[in-house]
Simulated assay, not measured.
Amino acid sequence: MTFVTKLTFQSGNRYELEDEVSSLKELVEKKGAECKGPHAQPPESVRVPQYRNLAPGDEFSPWEYTVYSRKLEIHGNDHIAREVGHMAFPESIHVEIEVEQKKPLGHRRD
């Protein structure tokens, strides 16, 4: 059985995100793992209301910012995927890790 490690990176700083994801992909490929991506998601515009106090209706203008996302997949190399999972990333980058187990085609369920 093969494992696929799916990494999702999100940040408000597009340049730092690109730099971090590109260097990670380079590192993973140097170590001999199959890496797919990075795949860019459309930027998401987020709007957060700000209130002067707890009373309704008394607001500042909303805080608006953009979140950029990139997805990367590591196929089959569990050791490298585990190593990436323990890496420290900048605080400005949010990282989600999902591990999926792939069974070969024609594999019977027991």
Score class of each variant (00 low, 15 high):
M1R: 11
T2R: 07
F3E: 09
T5M: 04
K6Y: 03
L7P: 00
T8S: 14
F9V: 01
S11N: 04
G12A: 10
R14Q: 11
R14A: 07
Y15I: 02
E18D: 15
E18L: 10
D19S: 12
D19L: 15
E20L: 13
L24H: 02
V28H: 00
V28I: 15
K30S: 14
K30Q: 15
K30Y: 12
A33H: 02
C35W: 01
G37E: 06
P38H: 05
Q41V: 07
P43H: 15
V46S: 12
V46K: 15
R47L: 15
V48C: 12
P49K: 13
R52F: 15
N53W: 13
L54N: 11
A55W: 13
P56C: 11
P56T: 06
P56M: 07
F60Y: 13
P62V: 10
E64V: 11
E64K: 15
T66Y: 09
R70M: 12
K71L: 07
K71H: 12
K71D: 08
E73P: 00
H79S: 07
V84A: 05
G85C: 00
H86E: 07
F89C: 02
S92K: 12
S92A: 15
V95F: 03
I97M: 13
V99P: 01
V99S: 09
Q101R: 10
K103A: 06
L105N: 14
R108M: 07
D110Q: 11
D110V: 06
D110T: 13
